[in-house]
Design a protein around this nucleic acid. Structure first.
Lengths: 225, 225
DNA sequence: CGCAAACTTGAGCGTACTCAAGCGCAGTGG
DNA sequence: CCACTGCGCTTGAGTACGCTCAAGTTTGCG
């Protein structure tokens, strides 16, 4: 709805990474993709499905995650408008993907992508860079999950979200506290308590649970390490 | 020394991944690489260095890691004989690499690789698959770091090492308890205590600290989830 | 307005951490 | 040959951070 005109699949779209540097991508890569609306909590693909499609978020937000047998969940990543997910080199999806809120996504069939790749081998390099970028982001997340305290994890998350999507001064969180907890390797209670703590310390403000304003960036960045 | 003949850089070498499926790689990709011996704890590259080389372990073992300002360390991965590391799509190395024990590694200059890629675009697909494989392994590690208990982490690690390198019935660990702790997001004491616990439960035997025998695979796999 | 879902807050507990001491083995030198 | 030394590993005791269980509050939506 909102940004549909600017992120039209037929227009040249810079592909922005979380890590910062935008990489231009062939203007019509997504021109043969179909647009699809996904309701909140709707599954996009599940662990074990054949990886026959690649996706790009137009609006909304998507989470990828894995479940342990006893129900413990690990959210691997959040994907916001403009970001690509489901790009596996081969085989089946290793993780599941769901829409966090009602979302518009572009769906590109894998065989179409393969076709394009045979005609334009240079494209392969772009895909590789996207995957490599994702890998770097994943590995950076290791230090957070393996070595950081709760307050450091939450601060890192807010700083990262602040760099990705800010609407007039406030971060709009599409995901629930549970999603955040499962992303940061914490419980929902710890996430909630920690955000309250950050608010008490005047580092952030919370006009509502899903809207976060960063009041003092410096100490948050310090916690980010 | 030992396996030099079979892992000769000029001979066709199947490239085996941790995830299992071997992928054939162009026989002479590493023919222009130089062989190098790295002493124990010797740095191979550091965070921030220009990513101008790609490496393949011939013998020994390598760790990649990141340091937080206060000295906390997160080991991202261990690379054993036959495995490739340092393959970044662009820019600088994001992490550091060190030899765990005295190791033989093949060093391929990035510009040579680029040259090969222009002549044989198909190679790019192989590189992409290597990176994608690494990404999958990284994301699988998320659940361990974010959601598993100490005993589950150690069990997962031992199962994984058992699949990668077994010498007549025993796992030879090239890395120290500290390396394992920093890989699993635990302390050295917890790793030690947990291994003792697994030994007391007769799931493993420890002829020595660096030699582990898996006595009962089933419950270990169960802990792995 | 009423209900359900999401979020917050509180109290008590447990797992893994911290700090500290002791052990075992390999290498070295008397 | 054996004491000495250093490093890596193990074990112990006490602590703390984040989890569990539970109740209460707020928000969003029919």
């Amino acid at each position: 709805m909102l940004a549909q005109a600017t992120i039209s699949p037929t227009a040249p779209t810079p592909l922005s990474y979380h890590s910062g540097q935008p990489v231009t991508e062939p203007s019509d890569l997504w021109s043969t993709a179909t647009r699809q609306t996904c309701a909140r909590n709707r599954s996009i693909y599940s662990e074990g499905d054949p990886a026959d499609r690649v996706f790009k978020v137009v609006s909304g937000a998507v989470r990828t995650f894995q479940l342990l047998e006893d129900g413990r969940r690990q959210v691997n990543a959040f994907y916001l408008a403009g970001e690509i997910f489901g790009l596996e080199a081969t085989g089946d999806y290793r993780f599941s993907a769901e829409a966090i809120v009602t979302s518009q996504i572009l769906v590109l069939r894998r065989d179409r992508l393969t076709l394009r790749l045979t005609n334009e081998p240079a494209l392969m390099g772009d895909l590789w860079r996207i995957t490599a970028c994702e890998l770097e982001r994943a590995q950076a997340h290791f230090a957070l999950l393996g070595r950081k305290s709760a307050i450091e994890r939450v601060a890192s998350f807010l700083v990262s979200m602040g760099e990705r999507s800010v609407t007039n001064g406030a971060i709009e969180l599409p995901m629930s506290r549970q999603d955040i907890a499962d992303f940061l390797g914490l419980t929902i209670e710890t996430v909630s308590r920690t955000m309250t703590l950050l608010e008490e310390q005047r580092l952030i403000a919370m006009p509502s649970a899903r809207r976060i304003v960063i009041r003092d960036r410096r100490p948050l960045m310090a916690l980010d390490s």
